[in-house]
Write a protein that binds this DNA or RNA. Structure first.
Lengths: 170, 170
DNA sequence: TTCATAAGAGACCTACTTGTCTTTTGTGAA
DNA sequence: TTCACAAAAGACAAGTAGGTCTCTTATGAA
């Protein structure tokens, strides 16, 4: 199963589990790994309470230790729970499903992209806008809305037309 | 003076010499430095035949040695000429003004971005398009056309509505 | 209470872009 | 023919994203 998030759209593309497309163009790999990791845990929560990093990394074809660090941030932000030791692993909590994607974005790569001047101008604000300021503002607020509206649960149940599942491998 | 190139547009924005905006979002710093460097030499060619890297770097607020390497590539591709020794420096040649920006892009960062799948799919072509394949193709061909149509001379004389001059510093 | 287990933490590596510094090479005018 | 000058070349370092490896810490069931 894959989630592709593209500028303002998320598309349905396939239906088989456990392959994912990398999120490109606008987001980092970390963000993609995080979304996919959280999703995998959420999807598995029906059949088992806890999922280990080895399993997640293998099913998602993602580097284990790198994913571990990302999951660590996710746990620190209480998006998932984790338990060490035997029978330990990552599990969803009461908040997981209602977490909006923008929260995951914030945790993994920050939200600076939403406030930076696209042209790199030192002085760029509504009063002294750069040539593309207003266009960028519109684009960004669209994207922000999409990411704020879409929750983990939306991805899990796949009930939003803007969400894509994709089977294809990276 | 600044040239801003944005997806499909290049805007006029100011009129004072020697400050530039960094090209963001789609291009590397190297490309921005290259365009600005070539432009500086072209603009100065009225008052002096050759311009030294120290002057260019200072006027453009760009790291001198890094710019030097980029200018070197530019010279190897015969977009500019250079002469060592006293009274040496960089100068325009008979081709400089007719060079399209896409040539500068090719020299500095390559054109791979025009053929890569935006989603990072291994298998993505017109017969097996990814969900955003056709949209991206259109975007890219627009951008490619803009960069192919705009020459150094267009920037120098600023006679195209899509070209921007900008005074603001990065 | 032990101990295998699994996450956490930290050091380190790779690749790439950007940036710095020093040495080498070519050159034009005196 | 010399020599100061300026580009060319090359070594090296910083910054960042991504990735690997090892050691430490917590835990839960036997």
């Amino acid at each position: 199963m894959i989630i592709i998030i593209f500028p303002n759209d998320i598309y349905q593309y396939g239906e088989q589990l456990d392959d994912f497309i990398l999120l490109h163009m606008f987001f980092t790999k970390s963000f993609g790994y995080a979304v996919r990791g959280i999703l995998y845990v959420a999807l598995m929560s029906d059949e088992k309470k806890r999922v280990q990093i080895d399993e997640i990394a293998e099913r998602l074809s993602v580097p284990k230790h790198f994913l571990g660090k990302i999951m660590n941030k996710i746990v620190k932000e209480k998006i998932l729970d984790s338990t060490k030791g035997p029978y330990g692993g990552f599990s969803i909590n009461q908040d997981t499903l209602s977490i909006p994607l923008i929260k995951v974005l914030e945790v993994t790569e920050g939200l600076e992209q939403f406030s930076m001047c696209a042209l790199g101008l030192r002085k760029c604000d509504p009063d002294h806008p750069c040539p593309v300021h207003h266009d960028m503002e519109r684009l960004r607020s669209d994207l922000k809305k999409t990411l704020t509206d879409a929750t983990i649960n939306d991805l899990v149940i796949g009930n939003k037309p803007e969400l894509i599942r994709n089977i294809s491998a990276y």
